[in-house]
Simulated assay, not measured.
Amino acid sequence: MSGARTVGELDFATYFSLLNLYADYAVVVDSADWARWPEFFTEDGRYRLQPRENYEQGLPLCLLALESQAMIRDRVFGVKETMYHDPYYQRHIVGTPRVLAVEGERILAEANYAVIRTKLDGESTVFNAGFYRDEIVTTPGGLRFASRLCVYDSEMIANSLIYPI
């Protein structure tokens, strides 16, 4: 990222990279390319899944809290090697990211999302909906998540959460 910016402003090239980060993330998790999922995060990157009620009340409890890229890799191992479940496809529909702040090489952004789940023997249903609240940083490898908070709207999540949101 280069050039002078004010809060909420990015140059076109950086904003285009931000759009690609969101789109590429959705493609990777929708295609079950689990080996690539941790690459979207910095080494100390955090991934958390939190109900909206807790988020709005400032309560820290999350359904899932991975506090480093190593923990994210461990989750990948669990998804690939140890979890047994009915197979399903998922499809992310992600809104255009809204830039909330730009502080040096750090971007705070959020985007709405919906995840559609399709079981092999069933119809497609809305599995999860909410918004991402992301802290993104510039690295030598491009933009990466320093923190991805998935705030989901429903208090209930059908069955168990296996794949990343």
Rank of each mutant, 00 (worst) to 15 (best):
R73F: 01
R73S: 02
V76M: 06
V76E: 02
G78C: 08
K80A: 10
T82G: 02
M83C: 03
M83S: 06
Y84V: 14
Y84S: 13
D86G: 11
P87G: 12
P87C: 15
Y88S: 07
Q90T: 12
Q90W: 03
Q90G: 03
I93Q: 05
I93V: 14
V94W: 07
V94R: 00
G95H: 15
G95K: 05
P97R: 07
R98P: 01
V99G: 04
A101H: 15
A101P: 06
V102H: 08
E105C: 15
E105Y: 11
E105P: 12
E105H: 09
R106M: 06
I107M: 15
I107V: 12
L108D: 08
L108F: 12
L108R: 08
A109C: 15
A109R: 02
A111R: 01
A111P: 04
Y113G: 00
Y113V: 01
T118W: 10
T118L: 09
T118I: 05
K119T: 10
K119C: 06
L120N: 12
D121K: 03
E123I: 02
E123P: 00
E123N: 04
T125H: 04
T125L: 03
T125E: 05
V126S: 03
V126P: 13
V126T: 07
V126Y: 11
F127S: 00
N128Q: 08
G130C: 12
F131E: 10
F131H: 07
Y132C: 00
Y132D: 11
R133G: 04
D134W: 06
E135Y: 04
I136R: 01
I136W: 01
V137H: 11
V137A: 11
T139E: 05
P140Y: 09
G141S: 14
L143A: 13
